[in-house]
């Protein structure tokens, strides 16, 4: 909480001059903080995981380095991880926002943040291999607009590194190799299979965002949006709430541990959402988020200054 107050004070101070650049300034501040500071709910579970590991093990050693890295990045206001990941914006806005104009400001802020070193040059042409150097290109950054009935604008940002994105998975039920049927037990089996297959390669201990249902595209999008939830919230669907807890507990019994070194914490959390499906389809889409779970959000004030931090 103390941290949030400090940041908002800084942002308010900065907001005084150049009115026209206020939105850009607020977005850059959001990017900088997302890249350098883990939100409180994530830090909390990491510290709990550290306390759980046995002393003098490689698992405890890894968690201690992770803890030190979180503190150092915050102190130096530098990227937690050199892979600043896919830049994912989620903008909730009232009816009538000019999304084209808003997108331009997001692009400007991303270019500037890249120049300032808050983001690595991370956007590569898939055919030529050329790096745009700006983090701008087809699909980059990824921006999701949602209209809402409220009057304010909320911008959430997630930076998701390549290592963890690579271990995401999508299953189509029934899934014969595991005898996983079209029910919650089948869902449970394939989620655990994804955790097993990831081993330590997703920079665990990680957090899963899961979507049951949807088409293939919508399933993955929803699985990432699940990662916008607070880690300590409770799923309003009782069955899903139970499944979330069960996935975390069972995954931690697998003993994969931090970095795959073996240990007590394999997962820090699991968030599951649901969408309708076609009678013929039953997808389970899983996004794995590394321990460097960089997500933050801001609510904009009337002058586009940062009114409130959302995490």
């Amino acid at each position: 909480m103390a941290l949030k107050k400090k940041i908002s004070k800084k942002a308010v101070k900065k907001s005084a001059p150049k009115k026209s650049n206020q939105l850009e300034d607020s977005l850059i501040e959001l990017i900088k903080n997302t890249s350098a500071v883990l939100p409180d709910d994530v830090q909390k579970v990491i510290l709990q995981a550290l306390a759980r590991e046995e002393k003098h093990t490689t698992a405890e050693y890894a968690m201690n380095i992770i803890k030190a890295n979180i503190e150092l990045a915050k102190k130096k206001s530098q990227p937690l991880c050199q892979d600043t990941g896919t830049v994912l914006f989620y903008v909730n806005h009232p009816v009538g926002l000019d999304q084209i104009e808003f997108t331009k400001w997001i692009h400007k802020a991303v270019v500037k943040s890249t120049k300032l070193g808050y983001l690595r040059q991370n956007s590569v042409d898939s055919l030529s291999g050329a790096n745009s150097g700006t983090n701008i290109g087809p699909g980059h950054p990824s921006i999701h607009f949602h209209q809402h009935k409220k009057k304010n604008i909320e911008i959430r940002l997630m930076l998701k590194g390549g290592g963890c994105e690579n271990v995401g998975a999508q299953y189509s039920l029934p899934y014969t190799p595991l005898d996983a049927g079209r029910d919650l037990d089948g869902v449970r089996k394939v989620i655990l299979d994804a955790v097993l297959k990831a081993q330590g390669r997703g920079c665990g201990p990680g957090v899963l965002g899961v979507c049951i249902g949807g088409d293939r595209g919508a399933g993955y999008i929803e699985s990432k949006e699940q990662l916008l939830r607070f880690l300590d919230d409770k799923n309003s669907n009782k069955d899903l709430a139970q499944l979330e807890t069960e996935i975390v507990n069972t995954s931690n019994k697998l003993g994969i541990g931090p970095m795959g070194f073996g240990g007590k914490t394999t997962l820090l959390g699991c968030k599951i959402g649901v969408q309708n499906r076609l009678p013929a389809s039953f997808f389970v889409s899983i996004s794995y988020m590394c321990w460097a779970y960089r997500r933050q959000g801001i609510e904009l004030g009337t002058n586009k200054q940062i009114k409130k931090w959302l995490y």
């Binding site: 890894a62 380095i65 992770i66 030190a68 890295n69 150092l72 990045a73 130096k76 530098q78 990227p79 937690l80 991880c81 050199q82 892979d83 590194g161 290592g163 330590g200 920079c203 970095m259 070194f261 590394c290 321990w291 460097a292």
Partner: peptide, 13 residues
């Protein structure tokens, strides 16, 4: 040798 993934600041130090 396995270094801790994501620990970019600690390792740069």
């Amino acid at each position: 040798f396995h270094a801790v993934g994501g620990a970019a600041q600690v390792l740069a130090e």
